[in-house]
């Protein structure tokens, strides 16, 4: 290594960061399918929370993992004053399934 490069060297942390990002992107996919349902649940709830305040007691989440596919069912009760349409009591239901 030349003297010039010795002084110019900026450390190995950027290399570590890049290696980790590539490695973990692969490992998350390899180990992923089992956790995909959990990720969907978190993101769907976060999206709903952006629009309405949800009472944690009024959220029902069921996840079933059986055989070749999993199901995720989220039932959220949204208070009627939050709904413009004016339905007396509304239940929003989201269903997602992951292969």
């Amino acid at each position: 290594m030349s003297l010039f490069r010795l002084f110019k060297s900026r450390g190995a942390a950027p290399v570590a960061r890049e290696r980790l990002q590539i490695l973990l992107a692969h490992e998350r996919v390899a180990l992923g399918p089992r956790d995909l349902v959990a990720i969907l649940r978190d993101e769907l709830l976060a999206t709903i929370k952006r629009h309405v305040e949800i009472d944690p007691e009024k959220v029902k989440v069921t996840m079933e993992r059986a055989g070749a596919y999993s199901t995720l069912e989220i039932d959220v009760e949204i208070p009627c004053d939050k709904i413009d349409a004016g339905a007396s009591r509304s239940v929003a239901s989201t269903q997602a399934s992951a292969a």
Binding site: R10, G11, A12, A13, P14, A16, R17
Partner: peptide, 9 residues
């Protein structure tokens, strides 16, 4: 000094 991952990393 860039020798160790940062908090942000």
């Amino acid at each position: 000094r860039g020798e160790m991952l940062s908090i942000a990393d």
